[in-house]
């Protein structure tokens, strides 16, 4: 028990010592995850809204596919992209392996089905009169999608935050594609895995606490926005 409490107090000390190495890792993590979340959201939210608003052949199949992809292990995505980006792979000449871009691509792919599914749910749970009202007022396909997103913006923000949370907590693909290079591709999760295996439990715990603080802050902001909207 003493070991855990001593480590915890050391971790808190590390956080408040504002060690540049720790905050470099936090910054890299947040930057990669935010970029991945923005890219995924800019594709998944319009795609989800379009899918929810239209009926077409194969819709049920896409829905099943999305559900399957939501449960896909991150190492599988890491493995597939590793095959594509490695020197001998078809996209090897792009030189993306062991770069933040590779992690961003992996995380965007990972959270795309989550965000798209949540966007579909957001439209389905919106007032059923919303879409007929917008159509009767003259909305065309593009303005319809924009106004549906605008009206369901809080649910869409929740989809974004959920996707971001999934991305920042991801470790498998980040490790395989980023290579955990210090100051470049080292994220909070890969650093926690590495430092703990090296025996530096305090640093791992400090990063873990910061990860929890980020998750808490995001959820707090989201709840505040919800309560403001009510």
């Amino acid at each position: 028990m003493n070991y855990f409490i001593d480590s915890l107090s050391a971790a808190i000390e590390l956080i408040f010592s504002f060690d540049p190495d720790i905050y470099q890792i936090v910054f890299t993590s947040v930057l990669i995850s935010i970029t991945a979340a923005i890219i995924a959201a800019s594709l998944a939210i319009p795609a989800g809204v379009t899918m929810a608003l239209n009926n077409f052949h194969g819709k049920a199949f896409i829905q099943h596919l999305l559900n399957t992809l939501m449960a896909m292990p991150t190492v599988v995505i890491g493995l597939l992209l590793y095959g594509l980006f490695s020197r001998l792979g078809p996209l090897g000449h792009w030189g993306l392996l062991y770069t933040p871009t590779a992690i961003i691509i992996a995380e965007a792919i990972l959270i795309f089905p989550i965000m798209m599914n949540l966007s579909i749910t957001a439209v389905k749970s919106a007032d059923p009169r919303l879409v007929p009202t917008l159509i009767s007022l003259g909305a065309r396909p593009t303005s319809l999608i924009i106004n549906v997103i605008r009206t369901t913006r809080l649910a869409m923000l929740a989809a974004f935050v959920t996707g971001f949370g999934r991305a920042i907590g991801e470790v498998g693909a980040a490790m395989m594609l980023g290579g955990n290079i210090e100051g470049f591709t080292r994220t909070m999760t890969t650093a926690i895995a590495l430092e703990t295996s090296k025996g530096d439990f305090e640093l791992g715990l400090a990063l873990g606490l910061l990860l929890l603080i980020i998750a808490f802050a995001l959820n707090f902001i989201l709840s505040w926005l919800y309560s403001r909207n009510d």
């Binding site: 009169r129 919303l130 007929p132 009202t133 106004n147 009206t151």
Partner: peptide
């Protein structure tokens, strides 16, 4: 509509 919907 019978039950008009106004956006927020």
């Amino acid at each position: 509509d019978q039950h008009p919907y106004l956006l927020p």
